[in-house]
Nucleic acid binder design. Structure first.
Lengths: 169, 169
DNA sequence: GAAGATTAGTTGTACCTACAACTGAGAACC
DNA sequence: GGTTCTCAGTTGTAGGTACAACTAATCTTC
């Protein structure tokens, strides 16, 4: 690593990004909690399942898709199961594996809460930016994700919204 | 709010930003935890105090500066006090208020852990970007912060790194 | 085909955070 | 000058997350 400390411009960018990191998750959580009784991460889990065939995925695949560790997902799945939003059952192909599936109530919950969540994202992020900035943000976040180790790079790479291949050179 | 859902480009930007939100805090926390035994937020608290006159601030002022709620800061201060990194004492000017001050050990801890933290920020964020992108990121984060309610706008506005005034119109 | 290594997932524990309830000190108002 | 309101901070509790330890099934290798 190069020990050089951050310049004025770099520090300004970092301080603002760190502030966004501190505040934005709270805004998302609190909108979803008050409107739907879900955390943002729980919403992501349900929403990801809702896009899967049969509304069913293997725990490991879901963990990778949502960038969660398996223990974390396991705890969250337990909680969502207690709320009757998902159910788990052994995978017929591999006795080690567990499948997790959205219940009817879970699917309904996604449909009910999606518009409010979208509106929050739009209001706090997208509508704050110009179209050009939206494009710049995509590139910037993509560049950062490439540095965030296997989870950021590889996990993001097999998401529906693929990162473009690393340019040669 | 306008109910329009997100376009392809908007969704791409949001998915990537959400992924950064999910992964970056973990990277910061885990570097600081393994190298210094601190969470990122604890580091911010110590670091903010280290820049204050007498290494002392009122709890409320520190909470605003670090974008934390008072209960959150109070718990964290308790923990840092148990670790002998800070101390608290009643404010002489206002018997309701509490001052929090960095101990010698706390100051040492900031000095010891700052370079590693800086290097992590540089490696995962700054060095991933071009100089122009650093500038774009500053503008983008500033724009988002303006939408993040009183905490984002006002709290950020009396930070050392002020947001530029909202342009007229 | 048995021993060891790897993979999938759960569970336990400790810590962190949000939210609500609470204490106690100033301010405002009359 | 006492009642009420607001402000500063702490505490209790419930839920979320990380990390490590664990169980059980599959793969590997000979």
């Amino acid at each position: 690593m190069d020990g050089k400390s951050l310049s004025q411009q770099e520090l300004a960018a970092w301080v603002r990004l760190a502030t966004v990191l501190e505040l934005l998750p709270g805004v998302l959580d609190s909108q979803l909690r008050s409107d739907a009784g879900l955390t943002h991460f729980q919403y992501i889990v349900l929403s990801t399942l809702s896009e899967a065939p049969q509304h069913t995925m293997r725990m490991t695949a879901l963990a990778a898709r949502t960038h969660a560790t398996l223990p974390r997902l396991s705890h969250v799945a337990q909680r969502l199961q207690d709320l009757n939003l998902v159910e788990r059952f052994p995978c017929p192909d591999d006795a080690r594996a567990t499948n997790i599936r959205l219940t009817a109530a879970g699917l309904q919950k996604v449909h009910d809460s999606a518009p409010g969540h979208s509106a929050t994202v739009r209001h706090h992020v997208i509508d704050a930016l110009t179209a050009e900035q939206v494009h710049q943000l995509t590139d910037i976040a993509t560049a950062v994700l490439r540095r965030l180790g296997p989870h950021g790079a590889t996990a993001a790479s097999y998401t529906r919204y693929d990162l473009p291949a690393t340019p040669p050179g």
